[in-house]
Structures are given as C-alpha cells and as structure tokens.
Amino acid sequence: MSGKPKLHYFNGRGRMESIRWLLAAAGVEVCLYGSLLFQQVPMVEIDGMKMVQTRAIGNYIAMKYNLYGKDLKERALIDMYVEAVIDLNELLMTHILQPADKKEQHLATIVDKATNRYFPVYEKVLKDHGQDFLVGNHFSRADVQLLETLLMVEEIKPDILAKFPLLQSFKARISNIPTIKKFLQPGSQRKPPLQEKDLPKVMKIFH
C-alpha cells in the first residue's frame, strides 16, 4: 500500500478543488494538507511521486481510479469536455480577485460564456446520446468536473440553469452518486468559496 495521497495547497479552493473532487469521486481519503514548502502548487504526493500541474494530476487520478473512459476515443472526448470546463472554471476562480468596479462586468462575462458558449454544448451532448453521463454510459472525470463547475456558477447566479433542463437533471443525478453525495455533505474536504477577507493571506502565499 502506498498510503493516502497528501495534498499541498492553501486551505481554500483554487486549482486544488478539482483534484479534491476527483479523489472524492473515486472514494479516496486524503491526508491532511502538507506545508507549503514547494514553489509550485498544487502538488499531490501519490504513489511515491510528487506531482505538480493540475491537468497532469487530474489525468493520473482519473486513469488510476477508472474515471477516464474505456478507450482512446472516450478519453479524447473526456479531455475535450474537461478542457472547456477548466476554461470556465478559471473565470469563476478569478471573480473574487476583480477590483470592485470590474466585478459586475466580470460576472456578466461569466454568465454570457456559461449560457451561450459552454452550457448549450453540454445540454446538446446529453440530448444527442440520451445517456446519464457525458461520455459513453460511464461515470467519468468529465461528469465530476462539470458538476463542480455547475455548482460554482450557481453560487454566483442561482437561476443560471433555468434554460437547461438536461443539465438540471444531470446535476441532480451526479450529485446523488454515493461518493459525490458524501463529498457534498458538511465536514468533507470540499472547500467553501473564497472570501474577500482571505485574499491578503492567499496573495501572500502565492507571491
């Protein structure tokens, strides 16, 4: 046994949150956070490796815990859907960092891109193949990370899924997968949204 993965990051969401989601979806318990002694974070200690780069970590976890499709074609689709989610996620993560006079416009950009660029694609995918999951009929990394992003967008605009009934059903369905349901309960490794009061500490860590 190689022991539980150890996560190195500040005690907040950021780029580590998607990794927490994946590990939770796989039913993997993690160690308490290590100290920030490394110049590059997030970093995950797993299987004797010290891994950096969020995409590389996510791919490794997805492959290790059977969340990466059954063949090359499915993995390509998963990568495609995840990359789009990451683009939207980056906008969401930087919203709190916007100056007060830019926040409203930044929120409008998030809502516009979510409702006109990203969500229609996922709605169509679910409609076209009529399955419970985004790729094949198997729970994958793409489902995990789309749910994460849907919930994050709803935090800043609760009615954003009003015009996307299949995404609403998807959200409810994936949220009820036992490992995900557990992660959504209070006391899990899931982190709350970053607050304004936390920004000085975060900026100090990353500078």
Results as ranks from 00 to 15, higher is better:
7 L>C: 07
9 Y>V: 10
10 F>P: 04
10 F>C: 06
10 F>V: 12
11 N>Q: 08
12 G>N: 05
13 R>Y: 04
14 G>R: 02
14 G>H: 06
15 R>W: 11
20 R>A: 10
20 R>C: 05
21 W>L: 00
23 L>M: 02
25 A>C: 08
31 C>A: 13
32 L>T: 15
33 Y>V: 06
33 Y>H: 09
34 G>I: 04
35 S>W: 14
38 F>K: 12
40 Q>S: 11
40 Q>H: 09
40 Q>L: 12
43 M>K: 05
45 E>V: 04
46 I>Q: 00
49 M>Q: 08
50 K>D: 03
51 M>L: 04
52 V>L: 09
54 T>P: 12
58 G>A: 06
60 Y>Q: 12
62 A>I: 02
64 K>P: 10
65 Y>D: 02
66 N>F: 08
67 L>H: 01
67 L>G: 05
68 Y>N: 05
70 K>F: 08
71 D>S: 05
73 K>A: 14
74 E>N: 01
74 E>T: 00
75 R>S: 13
76 A>R: 10
78 I>D: 04
78 I>Y: 06
79 D>Y: 02
79 D>K: 02
80 M>L: 15
81 Y>H: 05
82 V>F: 02
83 E>S: 10
84 A>Q: 14
87 D>W: 07
88 L>W: 09
90 E>A: 13
91 L>V: 08
91 L>S: 10
94 T>L: 15
95 H>Y: 15
99 P>W: 09
99 P>S: 14
103 K>E: 09
103 K>G: 07
103 K>L: 07
104 E>V: 11
106 H>I: 12
108 A>S: 11
109 T>A: 15
112 D>Q: 15
113 K>E: 11
115 T>D: 11
115 T>C: 09
116 N>D: 07
117 R>Q: 14
118 Y>V: 11
119 F>K: 08
119 F>H: 08
121 V>C: 08
122 Y>D: 06
124 K>I: 08
127 K>Y: 13
127 K>M: 14
129 H>E: 02
130 G>T: 07
131 Q>N: 09
131 Q>T: 12
131 Q>G: 06
131 Q>S: 09
134 L>K: 01
136 G>F: 05
140 S>D: 03
141 R>G: 09
142 A>D: 03
145 Q>V: 08
145 Q>Y: 13
145 Q>M: 07
146 L>F: 01
147 L>M: 03
151 L>N: 10
153 V>Q: 06
155 E>Y: 15
158 P>I: 14
158 P>Q: 12
161 L>R: 03
161 L>P: 01
165 P>A: 09
167 L>H: 03
170 F>S: 00
170 F>C: 01
171 K>F: 01
173 R>N: 13
173 R>M: 09
174 I>L: 02
177 I>K: 09
178 P>S: 06
178 P>H: 09
179 T>Y: 06
180 I>V: 02
183 F>V: 05
185 Q>M: 06
186 P>R: 10
190 R>A: 10
193 P>M: 08
195 Q>E: 07
199 L>K: 04
203 M>E: 14
204 K>G: 12
206 F>Y: 11
207 H>Q: 15
207 H>P: 12
